[in-house]
């Protein structure tokens, strides 16, 4: 039992003319080691929700429990929570500030109270994990390419060794190569370190390929919360709220309509390939 979100509501600018209800009665249970995708249209409350999970935003009402402890309890140490729940914001490269890449990645571990050597070790390890070559370590972060900057920023959070890693649109604005690198890196973190990963995205392809549970947000509410196959069965409803199923799912429906006997519950290209081969070759095998 890792994180429990219990009846959480959040209202922006409460009591003024600009009042917006960003979260509306959210109930979630996030177990250790899960790989979760949160999808939703702009303004659906997904970014607001993840900022609740490490206590950056305090819910207007409701409670959040981390390993059974109420994070709004006066005795609860929010900084400790932020050490254990790492949050990578959208466009994280905008937060780089140090003179060298290495120092920037050390910022998190140093704030955790580690000494220089230990923080350095953590930074070294994290930078290697994200695939930054060693000869770049002592350069200014502002000289890197966009994709590299983003990987450095992610390393800055990984160096804190969080148990839960939350990423807000980590692939926004990257080219396909950069996108795959980041997503593969995240998958590796999940598989090798057993980290709980929460990935916020609006790309169905990314989400379907990597995660094992999808939470769909719409207008501050949880609309669906299930494994990808089940969620994408509702592709018509997803379309109604401005989302969509992965393109292969549509392809499979189209093939089915045209008379090819394929499974339509398919969400990734690999699965689609297998299903089509099976249907085409059919009994010949």
């Amino acid at each position: 039992m890792s994180i429990i979100v219990d009846k959480v509501n959040y209202v922006y600018s409460a009591g003024t003319a600009y009042e917006i209800k960003a979260l509306d009665d959210i109930n979630l249970k996030i177990e250790d080691g899960e790989f979760i995708g949160i999808i939703g249209h702009t303004g659906s409350g997904k970014s607001t929700l993840i900022q609740h999970l490490n206590g950056l935003i305090k819910a207007t009402s409701g409670s959040i429990y981390f390993h059974g402890q109420d994070i709004y309890d006066k005795k609860f140490d929010l900084r400790e929570l932020r050490n254990r729940v790492g949050l990578v914001f959208q466009y994280p490269e905008h937060q780089l500030f140090e003179t060298t890449i290495f120092d920037d990645v050390c910022f998190g571990p140093m704030n955790q109270g580690l000494d220089k050597n230990e923080a350095g070790l953590r930074a070294f390890e994290a930078l290697r994990q994200v695939g930054i070559p060693e000869d770049l370590f002592y350069q200014s972060p502002f000289d890197l390419s966009g994709g590299q900057k983003r990987r450095v920023a992610i390393a800055g959070v990984l160096a804190m060794k969080p148990e839960v890693l939350i990423l807000d649109e980590p692939t926004a604005g990257l080219d396909p190569g950069g996108r795959d690198e980041i997503l593969d890196l995240i998958t590796r973190m999940h598989r090798e370190r057993g980290m709980t990963v929460i990935l916020v995205s609006h790309s169905m392809e990314d989400v379907a390929k990597y995660v094992n549970r999808i939470i769909v947000m719409n207008q501050g509410r949880v609309m669906f919360d299930d494994v990808p196959k089940e969620v994408f069965k509702h592709y018509k409803e997803l379309e109604a709220v401005g989302l969509a199923a992965p393109q292969v799912t549509y392809l499979m429906h189209e093939l089915r309509d045209r008379g090819l006997n394929v499974d339509t519950d398919i969400t990734t290209i690999a699965e689609a390939r297998a299903a089509i081969m099976k249907a085409v070759l059919g009994g010949k095998h």
Binding site: R82, G86, F89, H94, Q95, F107, N111, G156, V157
Partner: peptide
């Protein structure tokens, strides 16, 4: 917020 998430 991003720096607070990194322990600032």
């Amino acid at each position: 917020k991003a720096q607070m998430a990194r322990g600032a």
